[in-house]
Amino acid sequence: MKTITLTLKKFSSIALEFEELIPDTVYNWNKEDFENYQVPVGNSRFPLTNYFDIEVEGDAEGPEDVKMILEGDMGRVKYIGYRMTDGEIIVNGDADLQAGAEMIGGSLKINGNAESYVGREMRGGNIEVMGNVKEYCGTSYIGEWRGMSGGVIKVHGNAGKQLADCMSGGEIYIGGNCDILAGIHMTKGYIEIGGDVTRWPGGQMKNGTIVIKGKLSYLLEGFDPEGVFVDPEVDGKQLAGKYIKYKGDVGVNGKGSLWLDAEKNRNLL
């Protein structure tokens, strides 16, 4: 097991790009390798040591043996865990854009808030965010109709707009509230939202499942009610309580299912 600890000592307002510092590339680096490494910043590269204190302990045979700990405010460190296939990254602070984007495996834990594009086009692995995420969590790349296809994203706080745009697999759990258009254009996969939702979940969805345990303020016309179910099993998951099931979005001949907690949404009964 190799533990790599990078402790922020200087905050750069120009973002650092961290896609080269994932377990897959650094598992055989020693401290000196990190000290010699130049990190991309804007149109230049500067020594990583300008920004971080570096500690490396233990050895690793492969990425699976690596634990990277990023200490401090990573609010200007982009692409943490980008395309990682294995190993573990822990961020003790906030994370910047694209955390866990295109992730294939391993785990990423953010003990703070995360910016937009968490887990964009994720294919596998686990992401856990203890705070909030902004827009486009678990989304596709702009123009790409095949979005997140696997893995699990768990957000304990709130999620911003357009969660999981074009989702085509995997699971997303939001503990808090969620802004407009969660699961827009989704074709497959599972989204569960613990809190309240403002408007229009599942707009233009073709398939997949959205579960909302809180109150929904606006439902789209494109959703047809299919009845009320008690303790339903949804995508192999046992939900507790009464749920209203909808099918949609009719506008695109969608066969997606939207489950709303019946108690919290009595107005729709």
């Binding site: 258009l181 408007r199 229009w200 707009g203 606006y218 789209l220 016309e221 494109g222 047809d224 979005d249 009719v250 506008g251 695109v252 001949n253």
Partner: peptide, 19 residues
Amino acid sequence: DYAFCNAIRAVLKGKELKE
């Protein structure tokens, strides 16, 4: 705007509007 367009699309697909 979004809900308005969504309703027109639903009507085009033959759906009876609820609201």
